[in-house]
Structure formats: C-alpha cells, structure tokens
C-alpha cells in the first residue's frame, strides 16, 4: 500500500499565542486554553500517516481538536506549525508540501484531489443553487465545462448516492438532513478525489438514516478505494469504518492503534473511560 498523506507536527493556535502555550495546555494540564495569553491550543504536534484506500478514524470529545486537523488539511484554515505531504500517485507520483503551496495551488488541490463532507451541510453546499448545480459548481472548478457532460455526471453521482434524480433541480434547502448529506457526498466525490475528509457526517441524523449513509461510505470506499479521514465522537462509526484510529484530547493525540485494539485494549486512562462510556 502506498502512502498518500503524511502529516508531521501539525499545530493550530487560535489567538495571539505565546512561548508557554504548548507547555501550559494538553491532557496533563487538563485544558486547551493557555493561562498566560488566553489563546486556545486546538491542536499540537499531530502526526499521522494515511495509505491509499485506507480509512483512518480520529476520535475524541467536542473540543479535542479533531475537526481542526481536517480543516487544516482541507485548507479551510492555516496551521500555526507543522508539515503535510500529499503524495499524488495518479499525477505521475508528484509530492505536494501542502502548507508551503501558494493559495492558487492549494485551491487546485482542494477542488481536484480532495473532498470534504461537513457535519453542517450549510458549509459544504450552496443553498442558493440546485442539488445538481452544487455538483456542477465543483465540476466547473475542475475544468469540465461541457453542459451536457456536467449534467450527465451530476445525474450519475446523485443516482449513486441515492438522491432522487427527479429532485436534482431543487435547492438542497428543501431536502431532509440525510438527503443533504448525500448531496454533499456526491459533490465531494464529483472529481473522483483520492482523499476524502468526513467531519461528523452522521451526527444529528436519525439512526436508520445514519446506517444508510455509513453503508454508502463503505461501498464507495470499496468501489473507488478512496482514502478517508473520518472524524467522529461516535465509537460505533469508528468501529464500522476505520481500520486505524487516533484518539485526541485537548489538541493532542494521546493514543493511536488498530481500531479493534483501541476499542478492546485501550492503553490510556482517558480512552478506557471513553470506551467504557459507550452505550
């Protein structure tokens, strides 16, 4: 299996930051707020490797920094420190030092090679255009411009994610929560990205809808061999989707391992408590 993403020492501070920020926050300090300058250390020294076709889970409570990691990797935010290398094997084995690229190049990667599905559909979809239009937007950004081709590809994608084709010209604002997530997934997949980020995609949906979205994600991973980073606080989602898992607390990775090992033989006191709290 080839490596597709390598992240080293990723850190993100909200606020002006000070030299004591990192040492005065974290699981031992039991806070992510630096008491010297009041900055929030959302992530510190996060490192991970992702291989082609693999699903990596990032698990932790609200505020643990798990979403911050994928937001940085999708260029929604810029990290305070750290390095990320994206290995683009489809493009003749190119390597991209992600955070050193200029804005145009980052936008290109985001539109062509990465996909993101947010917990909140408002972040991932444009509610002023139709479901089909949302997909067309992403295809246009990635250099497909023939109207007929775009419409046909949008139709295929919506059919694949089980969105009723008859509704492709309606705004997603009229859709149910589960349908909105399906449109987001279709949009993210439009450019056949080798790397997909999923941020709490099933949180807040009812159980039967959750199950079908998760099944869809697994099917897509098996069909397209898309590598994914799945951020969730839900142990069930981790168990179902992820082969390996990172556990985060106060912006730090406190434990990582094979998912079955994390769930059956957690090493860290916090993970033990988290696993014991599962319903």
């Amino acid at each position: 299996m080839k490596k597709i993403l390598e992240v080293r020492g990723l850190s993100k501070i909200y606020g002006r930051g000070c030299p004591q920020c990192f040492e005065s926050t974290g699981p031992e300090a039991d806070t992510n707020i630096c008491h010297h300058c009041g900055s929030v250390v959302a992530a510190h020294n996060v490192s991970l490797d992702l291989h082609e076709g693999e699903i990596l889970g990032i698990m932790g409570e609200s505020g643990s920094g798990k979403s911050t990691v994928v937001k940085n990797l999708f260029f929604d935010e810029a990290p305070t420190a750290g390095e990320a290398i994206f290995f683009d094997n489809a493009q003749g084995a190119q390597q991209w030092d992600m955070f050193a690229l200029n804005a145009a190049r980052q936008r290109w990667l985001r539109n062509h090679r990465f996909g993101m599905v947010y917990q909140n559909p408002h972040l991932g979809l444009n509610f002023n255009v139709s479901a089909g239009g949302n997909i067309a937007e992403r295809l246009l950004m990635s250099d497909i411009s023939h109207y007929g081709d775009i419409r046909e590809r949008a139709r295929q994608l919506l059919a694949r994610t089980e969105v009723l084709i008859e509704r492709m010209d309606e705004s997603p604002k009229k859709f149910s929560g589960g349908m909105q997530q399906r449109v987001q997934i279709a949009k993210a997949l439009a450019t056949r990205p080798p790397l997909l980020y999923l941020d709490e995609v099933t949180t807040g949906l009812d159980l039967s809808v959750q199950a079908r979205i998760l099944d869809l994600i697994l099917e897509i991973q098996q069909e397209l061999r898309t590598a994914m980073i799945v951020v969730t606080h839900d142990l069930g989602v981790i168990r179902l989707l992820a082969g390996r898992t990172l556990v985060m607390k106060y912006g730090r990775v406190i434990e990582s391992g094979l998912t079955d090992q994390i769930l059956e033989d957690p090493q860290h006191a916090y993970t033990q408590r988290l696993v014991a709290s599962a319903l």
Partner: peptide, 9 residues
C-alpha cells in the same frame, strides 16, 4: 490469540 492478531497489545 488476540495478541497474535494484535487486537491486544
């Protein structure tokens, strides 16, 4: 067995 499969460390 679980150690061999690394479900246990």
């Amino acid at each position: 067995m679980k150690c061999v499969y690394r479900t246990y460390l």
